[in-house]
Each structure stands twice: as structure tokens, then as C-alpha cells.
């Protein structure tokens, strides 16, 4: 094994892992606050990939040629519209079922996922879609055959993810809004009695999760260049795995789980077998659920009194 391949794979894994982490935030926050897995979250991410492509096309059509400005506009529009999707999904598919059995919103989530996939397929076509390569610069370290290359885009992905996570952590732990979110998560009825509008907090949770998924959607779409209406499924389940790995309900856990999953998937596909990388990721999920269901940073269910 050559050192430069290892380093290259670590960089690739870190890039992938940051993206998983961003999406995992949506799973973990929603689970933390209402105790359900939002199976439509992966498809919210998929919608944001389409919005990215549409925004780039529209803004280019209107003559925005500066790439940083174009990307900024794209990110803002994608976050805004994706957040509206997240908000609307909670409102339509989950809130009416809030007080029914635990299984009902779960089934509703799977239904929502199918609705989104089919709606996008009808509206945008079943074919692969793509965006042009906007950033192709590369850092290259080393010479001859032994080199490591880091694309500008990889640097952007990792740094945007890190900054987003820091801002989110700050929001949750230092602001009044964040304190209310945590209170709602720990005891929803008591938070309500203390004057917290818990319905609004739940909506905000969906909006935050969707916004993070939208950031991931923009970054991944720029990175891979192509996508279809089905990308939300596999990426969603990977991000869900990351959330479980880190400890579902835990915000730093989501990021840690994302990075561990990204790194191990990248190393596995490079040193063992690329075709089985998804099998590897999901085997990991099964193993965590069997041996450490509370995840790395999660607290065991029994602690909840």
C-alpha cells in the first residue's frame, strides 16, 4: 500500500463524510425532538439537488457569470426552497399524526418519500440530470506517480460543512431559540407549560434539518455533477447510518458518525472492493444496531425516565 493512496482516500473520505454528516443532522434533530425517523429526509436532499441545477441554469440565463456570486445565489435559493419543503412535509404528513401510534408517522414518512420521488420523476423526467463543472482547480502535492490531489471543491465542501456545523452547534447551545429546542427535546409538555410554542419549535427543527440537507445537496451536486430522482434513497440511508453510528439524537454524533462512515467507506472501496462499499456501509449499520444501538455519543434509552 502506498502512502499517497492512503492520504488520497482519507481526503476523499473526509469529503464524503462531511456531506453524510450534514444530512445526518436532519435525521438526528427530528428524532431527538419527536422520536421519529423522517424517512423522507433523503428525498428532501434529492429535491435540493434538482433545485441546485435549476438555480444554476436560471441564474446563468439571467447573465450572472461570476462563479462565486452564482454559487452564493444558488445556495441561498436552494436552502430557502428546500426549507419550505421540509416545513410543508412536517405540516402535511406528520403533524396530524403527532398524537397517534408511533408507527403511523413512520409509514407516512415512507409515503412522503415515494410522493417526492414520483413527483420529481414526473416533473423533471426519469433521466439523469447534470450540472456543468464550475470549479475544476486542483491542488497537487507530490510529483511523478506519487502525488495527492485535493480539488478546490473538496476544500469548499469540507470547510462549508465544518462552518455550518459550528454555526448550528452555536445556535443550539448558546441562543434562546436553541435552549427552547433542547427543552422541547427533553420534555415537550413541560416546555409548553413554560411558554414554549413547541409546534413552532418542531417546525423549526424540520427547517434546520432541510437547510443542512440543502447545503449538502448543493455541494454534492457540484462535486459529482449528475443525479436523478432516486439519489435521495441511498444517500439518505447512508446519512441515517451515520446518525445511528454517532448516536441518534446527538448533534456532534451526527457529524462524527458521518466522518467515520465516509472514511471507512472510502478506505474500504479503495483497499478492498468498490462494488461492495454499500454492503459494507449497511453491514456497519447492522453491527451497530446489534452491539451498540445507542451509538458512539448517544445515551442509552434506559436513561430516559
Amino acid at each position: 500500500m502506498d502512502w499517497y493512496i492512503l492520504i488520497q482516500q482519507l481526503i476523499n473520505g473526509l469529503t464524503l463524510g462531511s456531506v453524510y454528516g450534514l444530512i445526518a443532522v436532519g435525521y438526528t434533530m427530528v428524532y431527538g425532538i419527536i422520536g421519529m425517523i423522517n424517512f423522507a429526509h433523503g428525498d428532501v436532499y434529492m429535491v435540493s439537488a434538482y433545485l441546485t441545477a435549476i438555480s444554476i441554469a436560471v441564474f446563468t440565463f439571467f447573465g450572472i457569470s461570476s462563479i462565486p456570486f452564482l454559487l452564493l445565489c444558488t445556495v441561498i435559493i436552494t436552502i430557502a426552497i428546500t426549507s419550505v419543503y421540509g416545513w410543508a412535509i412536517e405540516r402535511v404528513a406528520y403533524r396530524p399524526l403527532r398524537d397517534s401510534t408511533r408507527l403511523a408517522p413512520l409509514i407516512s414518512a415512507i409515503g412522503m418519500s415515494l410522493v417526492l420521488q414520483n413527483y420529481v420523476q414526473l416533473a423533471q423526467g426519469a433521466r439523469n440530470q447534470g450540472v456543468p463543472t464550475l470549479i475544476d482547480q486542483v491542488f497537487r502535492i507530490g510529483d511523478g506517480d506519487a502525488f495527492v490531489q485535493i480539488t478546490y471543491l473538496q476544500i469548499i465542501i469540507i470547510s462549508v460543512s465544518v462552518v455550518s456545523m459550528i454555526l448550528l452547534t452555536f445556535l443550539i447551545h448558546k441562543s434562546d431559540l436553541g435552549r427552547r429546542c433542547r427543552a422541547t427535546q427533553q420534555d415537550r409538555i413541560m416546555a409548553g407549560i413554560l411558554g414554549v410554542n413547541t409546534d413552532r419549535i418542531i417546525s423549526i427543527t424540520f427547517v434546520i434539518g432541510s437547510a443542512m440537507a440543502a447545503i449538502a445537496g448543493v455541494l454534492v451536486t457540484l462535486y459529482y455533477g449528475s443525479f436523478d430522482f432516486y439519489v435521495g434513497f441511498i444517500t439518505g440511508i447512508k446519512a441515517f447510518t451515520a446518525a445511528v453510528l454517532g448516536g441518534i439524537g446527538s448533534l456532534p454524533g451526527a457529524m462524527l458518525g458521518g466522518i467515520i462512515l465516509g472514511l471507512s467507506e472510502s478506505l474500504f472501496s479503495s483497499f478492498v472492493n468498490t462494488d461492495y462499499k454499500d454492503v459494507f456501509a449497511f453491514s456497519l449499520l447492522v453491527l451497530i444496531l446489534i452491539f451498540k444501538p445507542e451509538g458512539i455519543l448517544g445515551t442509552p434509552e434506559t436513561e430516559k425516565v
Binding site: 435552549r179 433542547r182 427543552a183 427533553q186 420534555d187 409548553g192 407549560i193 413554560l194 411558554g195 410554542n197
Partner: peptide, 24 residues
């Protein structure tokens, strides 16, 4: 009245089992 509006009217409840937020 919605639950979250009641406290602002001047009522406060110290509930059974205390219900403090344990992780805060």
C-alpha cells in the same frame, strides 16, 4: 387557550416529579 400562551398570563406550574431539564 393554547398551552404555551397560559404561562404568559401569569401562571407558573411546578409539576409533579419536578420535570427539570436533566441535560441542561
Amino acid at each position: 387557550t393554547p398551552t404555551h400562551r397560559i404561562a404568559a398570563m401569569g401562571l407558573a406550574l411546578v409539576p409533579e416529579g419536578r420535570r427539570v431539564f436533566p441535560a441542561m
